[in-house]
């Protein structure tokens, strides 16, 4: 039986690169676009700065989803950073699958400084999808 808990508000951790995506999120704010308050944004210098252990730690400490935001390929302030992110992301996806963490709980998205709208769309979509999945609640996973 699947119990759909409508009160469930997912906790999303977002890593936003300082040069594009964080500014995109800022633009969403200054343009007063409405979007769900479920994402805790963490500003990093580059999406390539997101050590895979940050992601693991986020899940283990209660995140229901993790989102990495970076500059579009070719636009990274450090040229190669987001390509490294793409390579890690593919491997992480497979690894997280082996841990039993569903696909929808981990996303990589490109958001430029001009894409405030896109940023809110992604957060909306991720929140909805993870709401449907239900809580991840890793502390409980460890109690079995």
């Amino acid at each position: 039986m699947i119990i759909v808990n409508n009160d469930f508000e997912p906790k999303l951790v977002g890593f936003l690169c300082r040069w594009c995506s964080y500014q995109g999120a800022d633009l969403a704010g200054t343009s007063r676009i409405e979007y769900p308050p479920n994402l805790i944004p963490i500003r990093v210098m580059c999406s390539g700065r997101v050590d895979p252990s940050f992601v693991m730690k986020a899940y283990s400490e209660g995140a229901d989803g993790v989102l990495i935001f970076g500059c579009h390929p070719g636009d990274c302030h450090y040229k190669e950073g987001n390509y490294k992110t793409i390579r890690r992301y593919s491997m992480m996806k497979k690894l997280l699958g082996e841990f039993g963490i569903e696909d929808e709980r981990f996303r990589l998205e490109w958001v430029s400084a001009a894409e405030g709208e896109k940023f809110t769309e992604v957060v909306k979509d991720a929140t909805e999808k993870i709401k449907k999945l239900g809580p991840l609640n890793w502390k409980e996973v460890l109690e079995v």
Binding site: S60, F99, G100, L142
Partner: peptide, 8 residues
């Protein structure tokens, strides 16, 4: 490791 086990 932080995750410690697979989620069943």
């Amino acid at each position: 490791s932080p995750l410690k086990r697979k989620k069943l």
